[in-house]
Amino acid sequence: MGCCSSKKVGRTPGYEDPTILASETPFTESEVEALHELYKKLSCSIIDDGLIHKEEFQLALFRNSKRKNLFADRIFDLFDVKRNGVVDYGEFVRSLGVFHPNANVEDKINFAFRLYDLRQTGYIEREELKEMVLALLHESDLILSDDVVETIVDKTFRDADLKGDGKIDQEEWKELVKKHPTLIKNMTLPYLKDITLAFPSFVLSSEVEDI
């Protein structure tokens, strides 16, 4: 991975006051500052402009900047709140906040719904669910017959589509998660509680500057 030439905190595009970010997210101020270290590392790994591009996100997730993945694409698109093709620092911290162990469960449920609502219609449709299952199978090199995939999707729809209209709305999604809480397990990153241990260099360099 490359290295940032800009060391000064204020030079990061979209840099926001840690106090404000801490007040709007489950992170403490020092955790927000530690996240800045991670952000700097990710945002200059390929293009040294202080913004996270999709290729940089893919590189961080897969150690391969060219690896296409439906779910990584969806996550990136949700992080890119301004929809300008890059994730800035504020977007990064606020979006990661949803994955904090202390984040509001409702926020996690809503984020997961938006993630799986591939075409942003306000519903998770049968075709979208099938597309995601196929993407997962492809990624895992698992081969299942179309009949088996249909069975998996049918079974899930019987469980989730309480109104029987062939699509899952937000209310039905909430009910499904209530029944199967493990469905949003991937919306919590335990790492985020120990972020200052993982990226202590900001804290250390701030102390040095203070002296």
Partner: peptide, 26 residues
């Protein structure tokens, strides 16, 4: 569990593309 008996969303949640934990690996 066999994929056939799993809820499709449970299956999907195992995707590497959803494992943001790798962002924190040095």
């Amino acid at each position: 569990a066999s994929p056939v008996t799993m809820n499709a969303f449970e299956l999907i949640s195992t995707s590497q593309g959803l494992n943001l934990g790798t962002l924190f690996e040095k």
